[in-house]
């Protein structure tokens, strides 16, 4: 909820982690944003959100963004623990799997933002294919091992949009 309100703010960016942390790898998106928050110093105009499995509550935070980076658990038919980056033309297709008008999930939030002309200019999805979604609060070993690669993909997406991400470790040294 720390959104820049300065009129001269250069751009508005959000990093959103989604998923259920009670279902092991399902929570990988939330674990990724926790990692980024702990590991990097980000400018105040970047909103970092742990969205959990929420939807409409996030509407306001996702309005009029220049860039939205979503970290999530994804199923794209690739091998377990694969890191997937989707952007530009891949993203709309990704969200077109809506099955009824009543699924108020992330795809509905984005569709709503489109309808009200407040959609993000760019969306990048960084996803990790799950190994297990069994009940439990820890990631499987394979998905945990994929975290650095997914983290690098998020940092690279932020960098490409001109967001400075300074590693906190480098600062301390």
């Amino acid at each position: 909820m720390h959104t820049a309100s300065r009129p001269d703010a250069p751009r508005r960016v959000a990093l959103l982690g989604v998923g259920n942390i009670l279902l092991s790898d399902e929570g990988v998106g939330v674990r990724l944003v926790e990692r980024i928050e702990a590991g990097y110093r980000l400018p105040e105009w970047v909103t970092v959100l742990d969205g959990g499995t929420c939807a409409m509550e996030m509407l306001e935070d996702l309005e009029n963004l220049d860039l939205l980076v979503i970290a999530d658990c994804v199923r794209t038919g690739r091998p377990p623990a694969s890191v997937v980056v989707l952007q530009d033309d891949d993203v709309p297709a990704f969200f077109r799997t809506k099955l009824s008008p009543h699924q108020v999930g992330l795809s509905d939030v984005l569709a709503t933002l489109h309808f009200t002309d407040r959609a993000p200019r760019r969306v990048v999805v960084v996803g990790v294919q799950p190994v297990s979604v069994d009940t439990g609060m820890t990631l499987t070993q394979a998905v945990a091992a994929a975290l650095p690669e997914a983290e690098a993909a998020i940092v690279s997406a932020l960098h490409s949009a001109g967001v400075p991400c300074t590693p906190r470790r480098a600062e301390a040294a």
């Binding site: 259920n20 279902l23 499995t53 999530d72 990704f94 099955l99 992330l106 996803g127 799950p130």
Partner: peptide
């Protein structure tokens, strides 16, 4: 069913690109 405001669904959030029959 919707008149009850069903809410089981929200506990899992995996994005799925494979089409599923409803």
């Amino acid at each position: 069913v919707h008149s009850f405001d069903p809410c089981l669904a929200c506990a899992v959030h995996i994005l799925d690109t494979e089409h599923t029959e409803v």
